[in-house]
Design a protein around this nucleic acid. Sequence first.
DNA 1: GACTATACCGTACAAATGTACGGTACGCAA
DNA 2: TTGCGTACCGTACATTTGTACGGTATAGTC
Lengths: 201, 201
Amino acid sequence: MGRTPAGETRDRVFRFVRERLLGGLPPTVREVQRAFEFRSPQTAREHLEGLVREGRLGKEAGKARGYRLPARAGGRPPVLVPLLGRVPAGPADTAVEDLEGYVPVEAGRASGELFGLRVRGESMTGAGILPGDIVIVRRQARAESGDVVVALVGDEATVKRFELRRGRIELHPANPAFQPILPDPAAFALLGKVVEVRRYL
Amino acid sequence: MGRTPAGETRDRVFRFVRERLLGGLPPTVREVQRAFEFRSPQTAREHLEGLVREGRLGKEAGKARGYRLPARAGGRPPVLVPLLGRVPAGPADTAVEDLEGYVPVEAGRASGELFGLRVRGESMTGAGILPGDIVIVRRQARAESGDVVVALVGDEATVKRFELRRGRIELHPANPAFQPILPDPAAFALLGKVVEVRRYL
DNA sequence: GACTATACCGTACAAATGTACGGTACGCAA
DNA sequence: TTGCGTACCGTACATTTGTACGGTATAGTC
């Protein structure tokens, strides 16, 4: 019968499974079978079990789509965080109508609730944050001086550098053409801290 | 029997399912059943089908773990592209020893071979590309004027704006403190085009 | 009351999926 | 040659899982 040199197919099976796992949806035995045109599910299973025996894969026995990356291999699948089009005033859950889509973020970075926000305006160009960029924000009510934050000033969401001076909050732009904002505490709300910036060219 | 106010349980089911979907592993009907302590899988199914009917969920009928986020909401799971620590001289696959990790990228953006590269130097700060940023690069041998590219000049990989002037290639920095590079065609290789910039704060 | 809708239960069935058992073909080494 | 290991096939079976059908209870409305 047509065979393949030692271990080569198994490596390709591993890469296929890893791809699927990293992508988020583990494959079934028969999906592996079809992908490699094996004529028996057992062939796929032998490769998968072999990979488990070698420690290259983990599994939840008996369960559908039970193959996993081994725990030590760190690679949890990325999570998708909502990309919000407008100001996230309430909890992100309620702002469904403003959902532009989802952005993948490493799970390790995903402590707390994250959301994405598209940047408007040029006030942070000096910090490499340009209009149209997407900032990934961890929702939190506190910040430290120097953090880049998303804040609600009046009715407007804005991205600025956060500074605490003599007990007073200041929001500093990173562009000499703009002035620092000294928000009225009553009309101010900190939405979260920027943990990542992305730009699609 | 114990019932719950209109729509409330359904909302909680939706959040549960979305959590699982964003986390990577879609739940089964019976996992939803157990999570909410329904005594019939049918109850879970009615909520799930209801959510599909409302357009809040999508599904692959008949398949195990077939519930999905609706297509409009961001679609395919992200793929992970290799983040290379050093110059990717050969195909990315061969440079495994220089692998720093993986970066998730939307599948829709993943036409062609992608890799990530960490930016060194300040030559592109004017374009919002700072030292330490990660650029996502599509491997390609051609570019057009204005593209931000990764090029190999001599032995060094560099990120610059690509310009073609009178048949001659020029690499322009985006920082007045740096000079354009007019590379010797013999010692020049275009590695790819930057399609995305990210910064982790 | 009669009617309808919603939320849930209980059970059964069918499809998808994981698993087991036995077989064939090839390469290699004793 | 024999024996062993690997790679694969074919088929059957058990579990998991999705699905269908019918039922009960509560609330609201006409």
